[in-house]
């Protein structure tokens, strides 16, 4: 937790392809960027939803994977020395009296920025909550979708649900400090890293934890304190005694805090004009999947175009009255200097 305020020209909310390209476009205009993303790595949907899937509609790249596109964009943005802040969700955005914007993250980072670029795609990735009847009552006390402090779970009887990397990683991390630990998965096959699966099976063989196959259908407990989970399986139903449950069913996109920033919204999207890609608040821009305007197409290439036009207006917002000379990277020695190629 840092109380220090980071002052910068621009804060970009979202490190997906559009956010990354915005660093480049703003950088050409000498606008320094900090980039915040809720995921633990850059790429947004390209990283979380389809890192290995080919994309066919990026101009001049007949075929590129989400992961490769992300790496290329990171390389392209590198000369501008952006600073990235991962595992952070921007929770608050407000205008200060001096015209700057204050942004706060759930990790305690505070930014003061001259302009804000919302490139948050479909919103923030948040853990899926399994629709088990009555689960809400246990959340925060017995049911957790992520682990903030491992120590808080010491000595507990833990039930972990899932078969992916999060489920297996937390199984291995928590087993030594849990009173008891059960991993529940719907089948005896795991998509998690084979090495983690092997370690988990060794712990089961050594009698240090249990592996059960099935799916949770209900929970029982009292006053938010879990006592047991009801499980259905192909061999019948059974209960697992646990006072703590960690379900890991992947992530889903939710608009999240963007809705609370005082911007006009239309069907969970941020309306912008198509000359500046500015929101209803001057100095706050929205590009990529999160914005809407007549004719909008949710394509990465549209977001790239939006980033270029947004950068022009961001420059004028930061330097009122100053003339901006339009230049090409192929011929401008000043742009080439910024790119480190001159």
């Amino acid at each position: 937790m840092s109380e220090e305020v980071i002052s910068t020209d621009a804060v970009i909310v979202g490190a997906g392809p559009c956010g990354l390209f915005a660093i480049f476009e703003l950088g050409l205009l000498d606008i320094k960027c900090h980039v915040v993303d809720i995921l633990d790595r850059p790429g947004g949907q390209c990283a979380e939803l389809y890192p290995e899937k080919p994309i066919y509609d990026i101009p001049a790249l007949p075929i590129v994977t989400g992961s490769e596109l992300t790496h290329r964009l990171l390389d392209q943005a590198k000369p501008f020395k952006p600073e990235y802040h991962f595992n952070q969700m921007v929770t608050e955005l407000r205008k200060l009296d001096d015209g700057k914007f204050e942004l706060k993250t759930d990790g305690g980072i505070v930014f003061h920025a001259k302009v804000v670029v919302i490139a948050a795609g479909g919103g923030s990735f948040q853990p899926k909550k399994p629709p088990i009847p009555g689960i809400d009552a246990y959340e925060g006390q017995s049911v957790f979708y992520s682990v903030k402090k491992m120590e808080a779970l010491r000595g507990r009887d833990i039930l972990i649900v899932g078969g992916g990397d999060s489920a297996l990683d937390w199984t291995l991390n928590l087993q030594p400090i849990a009173n008891s630990l059960t991993l529940l998965h719907r089948r005896d096959d795991f998509r998690a890293a084979p090495d983690s699966v092997k370690k988990m099976r060794e712990l089961v063989a050594a009698g240090k934890m249990q592996l059960k196959l099935g799916q949770v259908t209900g929970l029982t407990g009292d006053n938010g304190v879990l006592a047991s989970a009801q499980v259905k399986s192909t061999d019948g139903n059974f209960n697992i005694a646990a006072n703590t449950m960690l379900p890991f069913f992947g992530l889903t996109m939710k608009l999240g805090p963007v809705a609370e920033w005082g911007l006009n919204l239309h069907e969970n999207l941020v309306p912008v004009d198509t000359a500046k890609f500015e929101t209803s608040t001057q100095g706050i821009f929205a590009i990529g999947d999160i914005n809407t305007y007549p004719g909008k197409l949710k394509l990465i290439l549209s977001g790239f175009h939006e980033a270029a036009l947004m950068a022009q207006e961001a420059f004028h917002h930061i330097h009122p009255g100053e003339r901006l000379l339009f230049q090409y990277t192929t011929s401008s020695s000043s742009l080439q200097k910024k790119l480190g190629v001159a």
């Binding site: 998965h185 998509r191 799916q215 259908t217």
Partner: peptide
Amino acid sequence: EEDMLDFAFDV
């Protein structure tokens, strides 16, 4: 798809 169904509920 079988892998991805791990992320669905009540399979």
